[in-house]
Simulated assay, not measured.
Amino acid sequence: MLESEANPNFSKSTGLPRKRFYRARAHSNPLSDSHFPVPLSPSHVDYSLHFPQIFPSSELAEKSKKVEFADVGCGFGGLLISLSTLFPETLMIGMELRDKVTEYVKERILALRVTHPGQYQNVSVVRTNSMKYIPNYFEKGQLSKMFFLFPDPHFKEKNHRRRVISQHLLDEYAYVLRVGGIIYTITDVEELGDWMKARLEGHPMFEALTEEELEADPITKLLSSATEEGQKVARNGGQTFRAVYRRIVPAL
């Protein structure tokens, strides 16, 4: 029996969870303490719990390939779901602070695995605070792509320290990104777009992709269309502001 047949939180027609039962506040305070388990180090992350069809045991997961894509603040998982089939051989994980939203993404992935056998086995989600615990999940140079789509703008100047793109956090992102790895950011708030671009532009370990590279990258087209926030902006005729940068070795 499908989950949707027994659980009213699921749609009977699609077999997927219904968002209205998993609604939460638009954003959470990333500086507050939350109560959820955090691995002591990347070697303590048990990928067999996230990708059971790929890693039937924790011992096998330790010796196999690692997660390469991280969607920071993944929301309801739209980008992850799109990327899962676009890069079926790549392991990817969403990182979300809100518990109800994390639960929705988890149930959505499980339902998609049932309704589409053999697919969506390479994607998962974890509830965590990425601003505090990125180094607990990823080794040096492990990631090839990181995504920051429509993050909380934290408009007040006193709250700018809560922004997910900052000078000191870029140091951490540069650590977990391999050389050539890419950070993707997008927002519908122009001031935040300028902020993120300025921080990336001013960091010695990142350089902007050229327009030609952006046009050739299939992922850039998903930044404004795959997420619930991006779709809402499009419906309202709003603008988006994108900054996509590559991890480089700084010049001496």
Rank of each mutant, 00 (worst) to 15 (best):
S144Q: 10
G118L: 06
L252S: 09
E157D: 13
E211V: 12
P151W: 02
R161P: 01
M1S: 11
T90C: 05
Q167C: 02
H154A: 03
K140C: 14
F206Y: 08
I165R: 14
A6H: 10
Y175I: 14
Y184W: 06
D188H: 09
S84D: 02
E68Y: 00
V249L: 12
Q231R: 15
V176E: 01
V125P: 04
K106Y: 15
L112Y: 05
V101K: 13
P39L: 10
T240P: 01
E191W: 13
C74E: 10
D194Y: 12
G141I: 14
L97Q: 01
Y22P: 01
A6C: 14
V101S: 02
L2P: 15
S84P: 11
K140R: 10
S224E: 10
F241C: 09
S58Y: 07
S32L: 14
F206T: 03
L31K: 12
K63C: 13
R242K: 12
D46R: 09
T102K: 04
L222C: 08
H50N: 12
L223I: 01
L16E: 14
L200C: 11
K12Q: 14
L80C: 11
L49G: 04
Y22R: 05
Q239G: 05
K156M: 04
L31P: 00
L80S: 04
L222E: 03
R127G: 00
G238V: 04
E215V: 11
K132I: 00
F87Q: 11
R163N: 05
T227I: 12
H160W: 13
G238H: 08
P56N: 13
T187H: 04
H154L: 03
L169R: 15
A251V: 14
C74I: 08
P88Y: 09
I165N: 06
A216P: 00
E229W: 02
F148K: 02
R178T: 14
A234N: 08
V176C: 13
F51L: 04
R178K: 15
Y245I: 10
P37L: 10
V249E: 13
N122L: 06
Q142P: 10
N159P: 02
T90R: 11
E172I: 14
S41D: 11
N7R: 12
L209G: 01
K19A: 06
R25L: 15
L169D: 05
K106C: 07
W195G: 02
S166Y: 15
P117N: 07
L177N: 05
